[in-house]
Design a protein around this nucleic acid. Sequence first.
DNA 1: AATGGTCGCAACCGCTCAATA
DNA 2: ATATTGAGCGGTTGCGACCAT
Length: 268
Amino acid sequence: MGRQPCCDKQGVKKGPWTAEEDKKLIKFILSNGPCCWRALPKLAGLRRCGKSCRLRWTNYLRPDLKRGLLTESEEQIVIDLHARLGNRWSKIASHLPGRTDNEIKNHWNTHIKKKLIKMGVDPVTHKPLQKNETNRTSSSRKQRSPSSSETSNTSSSQPSETTNKSKETSQIYDNTSSFEILCNDEILLSYLLGDNEPPLIDKSTFESRNNINDENCKNDEMFASWDECAAWLMDCQDFGVEDMDFKLDFLNEVEMIDFPNASDNQTN
DNA sequence: AATGGTCGCAACCGCTCAATA
DNA sequence: ATATTGAGCGGTTGCGACCAT
């Protein structure tokens, strides 16, 4: 018995998200939380599949996302984890706060894979490449289909752990936690919803409110830093959130603040 | 400047899993 | 025990941006 489609295909919009749709989704989730993806589009006034909303939120709009290319150290972690876990992108992503499985998967396919091949390492087995394999795997857009067969081979060549899909939820990055933290941050939230004056932000406030020395922080359940949070908010501004009920003018001032780690993130 | 090829990212599709009735 | 549903995962594709000719 086949599954019912996750949404009514008729009248469901596909393709790239518009700023307007992003606004609606953000506004709804900030108000109601990321729940009931199936019902969300209707409630939020979006002509989108719930699945599409979830993807948009988790891969692009989530406030705790890092932007930009993976750093060298992140890449190394991905390579190490891939050697152990295979193509289990969500598992790998759970070790990299602020990174999504989709992002890591894309980065793997577009950057790391090539890098490893160049270094003479088979990106599937993580063992030294045979010479003919190097030629075979030289990247070309036309070779997408072969790569799919490659990936299906991957599954068989992956560590046995791959087939044993035991639940490891404790390791899975809980993307709701950052959201809860955002929601619990009453000052920020009420400001985002347009109820309050802009929060006064200084370095010490950032550090204390982010519990930078808190053990929990090491578990990556926060924004990586306030500047990243602010960066996300600035992205909101980029796609026109300033037109919403939200008022994000204060972000221009935030930009002027010298955040800890800000320069690191810029360079990455 | 025009054109064709390539690249990289965002989004979609189909499947599986877990929870629930 | 079984059917149904919601959510998540991994593979694949579409398309705009970029580059070479």
